[in-house]
Nucleic acid binder design. Structure first.
Lengths: 170, 170
DNA sequence: TGGCGACCTTTGACATTTCAAATATCTGCT
DNA sequence: AGCAGATATTTGAAATGTCAAAGGTCGCCA
């Protein structure tokens, strides 16, 4: 299958107009976006193939995994960067599958707390181990120093972006 | 509104187990993912607010913009990294809005070629200009040298990932 | 010339996504 | 007590996303 050649074409050919050259910020963004998309899709494929799970489910379970007491849906929403309405459905399906359980605490009946079931803990532990391995595999060709350096540099990107969001004009 | 504080919590708190420390590759991945998500969402908000358009529509139009003769849907699918089935609907809606036109070439009736209409060209040009500005804004706090360096380093990430995809075992 | 296999797009079933509006519940103030 | 405003979640509509299967069309070869 001529699947591989498709991969190099990619999003990076976006915008940068007929004129040709585009601003470095735009180039960087397009490369970040296409790289992230590429890796995400690979992870999604493998999660599906090996565990029958989706990436959003994995993300959600990851948050619950490190909070044994569970999380309110609003907290889950913030941490997964997913809207409230979306969390509702995600949790619903995970509950139907028996990996997550919903509880309403006594104190406040507006609140719903989601936590992993035992089956959920077991499944997630397996997925997390595989997931980490996949990443090491996919990043195997990168100089280890570069990995750390990149982590740090991308931190500045994130900070900068955070400081220039239109929404949060408090 | 306590919107800003949510942003720093984020995906990065994924996985890395109860044990704490996680592999550098995983940390890098989580940071790339959360940063990309953050910026994507901001762009989506602004596209919607200022142009009533969605990000996938923008992406698709970007591809068509630089190919005046249009693209076959399969090509569009590869370049936007979106599945075939998805492209069908995307193009359908853009056609309904009058920004894209579908044509079946004489030679091969299996093929559908999509191209921007005049209205599409005009709209996209405006969006692209704004889009580039938003990115420069969001990346304003980054050292310009770092922007270029990052672009290059992320290239190695992309290459490495590409070389370790499970799918393309040709 | 008939048909098989390859190629291109659409369709259908689901899951995820966002936004906005609707529900429920709680809190504090009068 | 009682209600206004703040909080928390759900719902509903529309778009996007995947995958697998189905539909056409084409090319080639026996």
């Amino acid at each position: 299958m001529a699947e591989a050649e498709a991969i190099d074409i990619d999003l990076e050919i976006i915008v940068q107009g007929a004129h040709g050259r585009s601003k470095p910020e735009l180039r960087l963004w397009l490369r970040m976006l296409s790289t992230t998309k590429l890796i995400s899709q690979e992870i999604r494929r493998r999660l599906r193939a090996e565990f029958g799970a989706t990436l959003p489910q994995f993300d959600l379970m990851a948050q619950l995994y490190r909070e044994k007491d569970g999380l309110r849906l609003g907290e889950l929403s913030k941490r997964t960067m997913v809207t409230n309405g979306n969390v509702t459905g995600l949790v619903e399906r995970l509950e139907a599958d028996g990996y997550v359980q919903r509880v309403t605490p006594d104190g406040d009946r507006r609140v719903t707390v989601a936590k992993l079931t035992e089956a959920g803990v077991i499944l997630f532990a397996a997925m997390a181990a595989a997931h980490e391995g996949w990443l090491q595999d996919m990043m195997a060709d990168i100089d280890p120093h570069a990995v750390t350096a990149l982590w740090s540099e991308i931190g500045t990107v994130k900070t900068s972006a955070n400081n220039h969001l239109a929404a949060a004009f408090e």
